[in-house]
Design a protein around this nucleic acid. Structure first.
Length: 287
DNA sequence: GCGACAG
DNA sequence: ATCTTGTCGC
């Protein structure tokens, strides 16, 4: 059965009040539990793709790679889950003022191998408002996902999921609309309170983020995500942690475990890092 | 009124 | 997010 909810699409023409109401519906339709067989081990990425010579092979070549012996295959011969990274870049107008259009990029990985790329450029209709990001970037993202042939088993979105004022961040919104398991990976904390200070933590460290007064829809103290130190330098400057939260059909614990498994030596998990690079390339090609 | 706020 | 060179460290 198809449980996607196209009726809950992030329509940018809604009023602020309507947007917030829609987000409460999204949160109500969301599942912050593991209802699938997605295991962190199954999606683990062993080696980072080299961006030195540009991005890995585009779709046509990558499809051929799928049939290469040992590439992205699991031991029992089953196909690994398809993980799709989603990211955005913005085009600026002639005067160099405000962003004019959004470039949404999606990159599909299977067993650490890139199997497909897609992107979509959409005019921006509303400004960025904290808490309403999905209404600015949601439509472009959905357009990019539509351009993808692959069937995502997991979406890795740039931004929050359950770590949100109404527990309905970008990752949750997109996940619910398509009824696909999703996680949110943010570079800064929107709301909620970490159990411990996140300062100068070693790679691999994590601490729960709990709902506070800024998240009235959740029972106070509910774990809505985690701060996760994906990378750290031995010396020199410190790296800030990531803020990982469930989008849809994933628990807070599994969300961090999945992201940890998807990291391959860089601060950002591979799907996000590759989508980021693809978005930049698509943007450059458009200029 | 003040503070605080993903990309 | 975006505007941008060099620079410090592995």
């Amino acid at each position: 059965m198809d449980l996607a909810r196209p009726d809950l699409r992030p329509d940018p023409s809604l009023s602020t009040a309507e947007m917030e109401t829609l987000q409460r519906e999204i949160a109500a339709a969301a599942t912050f539990e593991d209802d699938h067989a997605l295991s962190p081990a199954a999606v683990a990425v062993e080696e980072a793709a080299s961006l030195a010579d540009g991005l890995p092979p585009a779709r046509g070549d990558a499809v051929a790679n799928e049939t290469l012996p040992g590439t992205g295959d699991t031991e029992d011969g089953t196909d690994p889950p398809t993980v799709v990274g989603v990211d955005q870049a913005f085009l600026t107008d002639r005067e160099g003022d405000r962003p004019d259009a959004a470039v949404s990029a999606v990159v599909a990985l299977r067993g650490g191998t890139v199997v497909e790329y897609a992107s979509a450029t959409t005019p921006l209709s509303i400004p960025y408002v904290p808490g309403l990001l999905a209404f600015r970037e949601g439509e472009p993202i959905l357009a990019a996902l539509d351009a993808l042939d692959a069937d995502p088993d997991l979406l890795v979105c740039d931004g929050s999921g359950r770590i949100h004022f109404r527990e309905a961040g970008l990752a949750t919104h997109v996940g619910v609309l398509r009824d696909v398991p999703s996680v949110g990976v943010a570079k800064s904390l929107l709301c909620g309170e970490p159990d411990e200070s996140t300062d100068e933590r070693p790679a691999g460290w994590r601490t729960p983020i709990r709902a506070d007064d800024a998240v009235p829809t959740a029972e106070p103290g509910t774990v809505i995500g985690h701060a996760f130190q994906s990378r750290q330098y031995p010396n020199s400057k410190r790296v800030n942690p990531l803020y990982v939260s469930p989008g849809h059909r994933v628990s807070a614990e599994t969300a961090v475990d999945l992201v940890a498994a998807l990291c391959a030596g860089y601060k950002l998990p591979e799907p996000t890092r590759l989508a980021d690079a693809h978005a930049d390339r698509a943007k450059r090609d458009a200029e």
